[in-house]
Amino acid sequence: MTDRPSTEDFLRLADPMRRELLAHCYRMTGSVHDAEDLVQETYLRAWRAYDGFEGRSSLRTWLYRIATTVCLTALESRGRRPLPTGLGAPSTEATAPLVERPEVPWLEPVPDGMVGAGADDPAAIVTSRESIRLALIAALQHLPPRQRAILVLRDVLRWRAAEVAEALETTTAAVNSGLQRARAQLNEVSPSLDDPTPPLPHDQREQLDAYVAAFESYDVAALVKLFTRDAVWEMPPFIGWYQGPEEIGRLISVNCPAEHAGDLRLVPVAANGQPAFAVYFRQGDIYTAFSLMVLTLAAEGIRHVAMFFDVGLFEAFGLPSTRPVEERASTTN
C-alpha cells in the first residue's frame, strides 16, 4: 500500500486546474462567491479521497466529477439566480418607482481573470469567454440542476455521453434525453446564444470610449444614441428592466444620482468575456464604489447593459472601494 500523498504533491498536480474548475462551478451556480466556496469544497473532497484515485480517468476528469457532484448537492437547497429579465415580468416604464428585492439571490458577474478568460492562449480565451457569457449563464439558470450539468459537461467540456452518465450515475440514454431537453429549453429562453462573440473591432472600441465619455460627462442624450433600438437595461437587485434607448435615457435622467459632469467615474474591467466597467460615484473628495456594469455589444450599438449594485463584487474584481477624485481611470483594458 502506497503512502498517502502529501498536501504539496496533491496541490502541485491539482492547482493548475483551479481556474477552470471555478469557471465550471460558476456556470453551474451563476455566483462567483458560491463558485469560490464550491471549488474549495471540491479540493477538500478530492484531497480526502486522493489515496483512492486509481487513475482510470485523468485527474482533470476526476476533479470535474467531484466539482459537479458538489455543485448539484449545493443546488438542492438553493434557488436559481435570475436577472430581472428572467423573472417573467414585462418591461418597466422608466418613470415607475424602483422596486428593490435584495432577498433574491441574483446572478453575479465573474472577472475574466478568475476563470481563465484572460489567459495567454488565444484559443483558450475564446473558449472561456464564450462559455461564461452573461446571456448563457442567465439562460442556464432556467434549467434544472441535472440538466444544467448535462449541458455543461456535453456542450462546454465536450465530454462523451458515457462519461457524463458515469459522472452523474445515470444511463447514456438519460444523458442524451436530458441534453435534448436542455438544448430545447435554452433555445426557447435565449435563441441568440449560438451567435459568437467576436473580438471588438476598432469602431466598437470607439463606441466604448464614447460610452465612458457620455457617462462621465453625464450627457444622457449622447448615451441614448449609443444603444440599439431593442437595447435592454437591467440592474439587480431592482426587479424592473427597461427596453429601448428612450426608456433607458429616461431611466438614467430620473433615477441616476449623478447631476453634473464628473459625478461618475467608469473604470474598465473584464467580466464574463465582455466589456465591463466599475462605476464610482463622487462623494466630496472621493469616489465610492457604486455598481458594476457588463455590456453586450452588437454591430449597430450597445444592446444590453446589466448593472449590478452589489458593491461586494468590487473585492472579487480586485477593485478598491474608494478612489481619489483626481485619479483618472485608464481608457484601455
Rank of each mutant, 00 (worst) to 15 (best):
D3P: 13
T7N: 00
T7D: 13
F10D: 05
R12N: 04
A14G: 14
L21M: 05
M28W: 09
G30R: 00
H33M: 06
L44C: 03
R48P: 04
A49Q: 15
D51W: 12
G52T: 13
F53Y: 15
S57P: 01
L59G: 13
W62R: 01
L63V: 04
A67S: 11
T68F: 00
V70T: 12
C71E: 06
C71H: 06
T73I: 04
A74K: 07
L75M: 01
G79H: 01
T85S: 15
G86W: 00
E93L: 14
E93Q: 04
T95S: 14
L98V: 10
L98D: 02
L98W: 09
E100P: 06
E100A: 10
P102Y: 02
P105L: 07
L107R: 06
G113E: 12
G113R: 06
M114Q: 14
A117L: 02
G118W: 02
D121S: 09
I125P: 05
V126W: 03
V126Y: 06
T127R: 12
T127E: 13
S131K: 08
R133G: 12
L134Q: 13
L134E: 09
H142P: 00
V152P: 00
R154L: 01
D155V: 03
L157I: 14
L157H: 14
R160P: 03
A162K: 08
A162D: 11
E163A: 08
V164G: 00
L168T: 04
T170I: 02
T171H: 07
T172H: 03
N176V: 08
S177K: 06
S177D: 08
G178S: 03
R181S: 04
R181M: 08
A182P: 05
A184P: 00
Q185G: 12
Q185W: 13
N187I: 09
S190K: 06
L193C: 08
D194K: 14
D195Y: 04
T197C: 14
L200F: 05
L200N: 11
H202F: 09
H202K: 12
Q207A: 14
Y218L: 15
V220Y: 01
V220H: 04
A221C: 11
A222R: 12
L226T: 05
D230V: 13
E234C: 11
M235Y: 11
G240I: 02
W241R: 11
W241D: 05
G244D: 03
E246A: 11
E247K: 02
I252N: 09
S253C: 09
E259W: 03
H260T: 10
D263R: 03
L266D: 06
P268A: 08
P275D: 09
A276K: 04
F277Q: 04
F281L: 07
Q283V: 10
G284A: 06
I286Y: 10
S291A: 08
S291Y: 13
S291V: 06
L295F: 02
T296Q: 07
V305I: 15
M307H: 10
F309K: 09
D310S: 08
F314T: 04
A316T: 15
A316H: 12
L319I: 08
L319A: 07
P320E: 04
S321C: 12
P324D: 01
R328N: 07
